[in-house]
Nucleic acid binder design. Structure first.
Lengths: 147, 147
DNA sequence: TATTGTTATACTCTATAACTATA
DNA sequence: TATAGTTATAGAGTATAACAATA
C-alpha cells in the first residue's frame, strides 16, 4: 500500500522564477544530451568546438574564460578533446607559455555534424515555443534576468 | 602584455537557447544565493522548507520526489535541516518504516523570514523583466520548452 | 612580478547499488 | 515481495592554491 496518495501542494514552490528556470534548463540539457549522444559530445565540449572553429589559434585561457570555465578545469576538457583527435595544441610563435588551439580535420568534421544536429534541435525548440518571435522574446527575457 | 586582445566570435554559441538558458539560470542562482546568504539557506533547502510548511506530515520520499531529489541524497539534506533544528522527523502511526516531516517553531520562523526575502527577490526579478505580464510570458515559454 | 598551463585537492550535486527494518 | 530510510560510493561540475616555465 502506498498511503492515501493525496497530492502535495507545490504551487508556491513551482511559481518561483528561479525554480522554473532551473527545471527548464535541466529539461533542455537532457534533451540536448540525448540529441548529441551519438556524437558523444557534451554541451561544454560542443561549445568549445564551436568557439575554436570560429576562432582558431586562440589561447586556452581565452576560450575557457569566454565560456565561464576556470582554466584549471579547462585542461581536463581540452585533454579529452585532444586525445579523441578533435583538437590540437600548437606552440604560439613568440610566446612559449601559451597553447594555440585548433580543430583537426576530424574535429572540423565532427563539428559540422554537430551543427546539423544543433540546428535541428534549435528548430524543434523554436517550434515548441511557438515561432521565431517567441524565441526572441524568450532570449530577451533571459538576458534581462542576468542584469 | 596580454596579447593583441581581439574579441572572440561568440555569437553562434551564445545564440543557442540552451546555452542562454544555462547562463540565465546560473546568474539567478547566484543572485538567489547572495540573497539567502544571511539565512544560510540554499535553493533546495528553501524548497524543502516551503514544501514541508505547506504539507506537514508527509514522508521523506514524497517531499524528495516532488523536488526531483533522489531519496538517498535527500537524507543528507534533511539531516542538515534537522541538525539545525529547523525540521523534525516523527514516526508515522501505523507505519514504522516512514518518517513524517514537520517544521519546528524555529523552522517555521526561518521560513517566514525566507519568504519575505523570496518575495522581495521575486519582485526584483519581475521588475527586471518589465512587469508581471513579462513574467507570465517567461513562465509560459519555459513551460513549453519542457515538453 | 605577471601570465599560462598544469596538478592536486575539495566541495557540491547527482546517480546507483546494497543494506535494514518494516509491511 | 515491496516500501522507506539509510549508507557507501562514484561521477560530473566547479572552486582554490600552488607549482613550473615563460614573459
Amino acid at each position: 500500500m502506498t498511503g492515501s496518495g493525496d497530492a502535495l501542494r507545490v504551487e508556491e514552490t513551482t511559481s518561483i522564477i528561479g525554480y522554473r528556470l532551473r527545471r527548464a534548463q535541466l529539461a533542455i540539457f537532457q534533451q540536448f544530451l540525448s540529441t548529441f549522444e551519438t556524437l558523444n559530445l557534451r554541451p561544454a565540449e560542443f561549445s568549445v568546438l564551436v568557439l575554436i572553429g570560429n576562432n582558431p589559434g586562440r589561447k586556452q585561457t581565452e576560450i575557457a574564460e569566454v565560456l565561464g570555465i576556470k582554466r584549471a578545469n579547462f585542461v581536463t576538457l581540452i585533454n579529452r578533446l585532444d586525445s579523441r583527435g578533435l583538437t590540437e595544441r600548437r606552440v604560439v610563435p613568440g610566446n612559449r607559455r601559451a597553447n594555440a588551439l585548433y580543430l583537426t580535420p576530424a574535429g572540423a568534421g565532427l563539428l559540422e555534424e554537430a551543427r546539423r544536429l544543433q540546428d535541428a534541435f534549435e528548430t524543434r525548440c523554436v517550434e515548441k515555443l511557438g515561432g521565431p518571435e517567441a524565441r526572441d522574446t524568450l532570449l530577451d527575457l533571459l538576458e534581462k534576468l542576468c542584469r
